[in-house]
């Protein structure tokens, strides 16, 4: 996993709970905690940090990843404003492979970005297949929900199939709508 993801997690945790909380997660998970955005670090370390956060918050892994996705989005918008020039959340999400990840690969050579297969459901919803070895579909969901919030839209995210339930890959069906006051900020 690229160091930039660890930095992002640190920033999200720091903003939500203060910098001391990150120290606690480092110590609870037993990782080195030394992360440079340019470096590569074992996937086990991000899993250990997520597990520690889950333990502290009494949340499962998916819930932590989803929280991370939602809360990482405003930080990403500050760091990479160019990615957020899309007209709406759907266009932003649809540009994930060709715009966002292609730029990520330029900045971080060797980054193993997941691939999303996109198609439009007969209903008009966006159908995304999530193809990754890391099983972080909940993080993807968090990112989609965080993006909707950033663009001031509501989103309905259905996780129609999942590798954790034996499917060959995860599939999401996503519909966007105008903002609803409660969904603007996810948990």
């Amino acid at each position: 996993m690229k160091g930039v993801v660890f930095n992002l997690l640190e920033e999200a945790v720091g903003r939500a709970f203060g910098p001391d909380t990150w120290d606690t997660l480092i110590e609870m998970s037993g990782v080195s905690g030394v992360y440079s955005s340019l470096g590569n670090y074992p996937d086990e370390e991000i899993e250990a940090l997520v597990a520690a956060a889950g333990q502290a918050l009494s949340l499962n892994r998916d819930a932590v990843l989803r929280w991370f996705g939602v809360n990482a989005m405003p930080i990403l918008a500050e760091l990479y404003p160019d990615f957020f020039r899309a007209p709406d959340a759907r266009a932003f999400v649809e540009g994930v492979n060709d715009i966002i990840h292609s730029e990520v690969r330029k900045l971080y050579p060797g980054a193993a970005c997941p691939h999303f297969r996109l198609q439009t459901h007969p209903s008009g919803d966006l159908v995304m297949d999530y193809l990754s070895t890391r099983s972080m579909c909940a993080l993807a969901q968090g990112f989609v929900e965080g993006a909707a919030a950033w663009f001031g839209e509501s989103v309905e995210f259905q996780h129609t199939s999942c590798t954790q339930h034996g499917a060959p890959h995860c599939t999401f069906q996503i519909a966007w709508g105008p903002a609803k006051s409660e969904t603007a900020q996810a948990a």
């Binding site: 945790v13 709970f17 203060g18 001391d20 909380t21 120290d23 606690t24 956060a53 502290a56 918050l57």
Partner: peptide, 8 residues
């Protein structure tokens, strides 16, 4: 919420 670690 994560408890305010280290506050004490």
């Amino acid at each position: 919420m994560i408890p305010p670690l280290g506050s004490d």
